[in-house]
Design a binder for these strands. Structure first.
Lengths: 127, 127
DNA sequence: CGACGCATGATAATCTGTTCTCAGTTGTGG
DNA sequence: CCACAACTGAGAACAGATTATCATGCGTCG
C-alpha cells in the first residue's frame, strides 16, 4: 500500500526540521543531506502520498512558488517577506472574520497572509 | 504614450461591469461583446498597461487562476466558492491582525481569503 | 529467503498561464 | 490629411510547476 523508504523518511524529516513551509526544491535539497541524491519526482510523489494521508499540507501564497509543511502544526497563517521571499509561520488567528462573510456564503476555511519585510531584511542584516 | 482604443475601452468596461474579479479569459469573452474578437494577447497587454497606471489590480487566489478588478473599489478581500470557483468581493476588513505579526516583521499589506460555498451553489440552485 | 509490487530517478512530456513575433491597423498631434 | 508610433490578432514560443515513462531498486509479507 505505502512503503516506508529512506527517501520518504528523509523528506518528512526535512519538513519537520524546518520552521517554515518548504518548496519541493528546498525539500529535495534538504532531504538529499539525509539520503544522497533524491529525485524531484520522488519528492512530488511523496508529498502527494503524505497529503493523501493528511500528514502534510500544501501552502500556496500568491506570487510565491507552492510550498509544504507538516499538518500537525495546528491552525495558523503565514507571512511572506517581499525581499527574501521566505514564508514564515504565524501563530494564532483573528476574530471578526464572520463580519466579512456575505449572507448565504458558507465558509469552510480561510487564509490570511501578511506581506512585508522580515526581521533579517528589515534590520539590513540579511537579504 | 498610450492610445485609447476600442479594445481597451471594452476591456475596462468589462471589468467595471463585473461585480467580481475576472480572469483574462473572462475579460476577453466579455470584451468581445463590445468589440468583436479581441485577442488574448491584447487583453494581457491592456491589463499590463492598466496595472502600470494603477487602474486595475491583480487578484491572486491560491488554487485559482489569476484575475483582475478595477482599482477603485477600496480595501477589500475575497471569497472563493469551492464549487463554482468564482471569486467574490467582500467588504470591510478585520481588526486584530496586529496580534499575528511577529516582532520585527513590518507588515506592508495583507490578504484575507474565505473558501466555502456560495449562495447559488449552497442552495442547490446552480453549480 | 523469495516473490510481488510499490518506490525510485532521470528525463521527457504535459499543463496552464503569459509573452513574443510580425505584418497589418489605427489613434494622435500638427 | 500625414507621418509616426502604439496597438492589434493569431499562433508560436516560453516559463514554471507538476506528472508520466520505464527500467531498476527495495520494502513487506509469508
Amino acid at each position: 500500500m505505502s512503503y516506508s523508504t529512506r527517501q520518504r523518511e528523509a523528506i518528512l524529516n526535512t519538513l519537520r526540521r524546518a520552521d517554515r513551509p518548504l518548496t519541493p526544491q528546498e525539500i529535495r535539497e534538504g532531504a538529499s543531506q539525509d539520503s544522497a541524491g533524491i529525485g524531484l519526482a520522488t519528492v512530488y510523489r511523496a508529498l502527494k502520498a503524505f497529503m493523501a494521508r493528511k500528514e502534510v499540507l500544501l501552502v500556496e501564497i500568491p506570487g510565491n512558488p507552492p510550498c509544504y509543511e507538516p499538518a500537525d502544526r495546528g491552525h495558523h497563517h503565514h507571512a511572506v517577506c517581499e525581499q527574501c521571499r521566505q514564508v514564515f509561520d504565524l501563530h494564532g488567528c483573528v476574530q471578526g472574520l464572520d463580519a466579512l462573510v456575505p449572507r448565504n456564503f458558507r465558509v469552510q476555511r480561510h487564509d490570511i497572509t501578511l506581506y512585508g519585510v522580515c526581521a533579517a531584511c528589515g534590520t539590513g542584516a540579511a537579504g
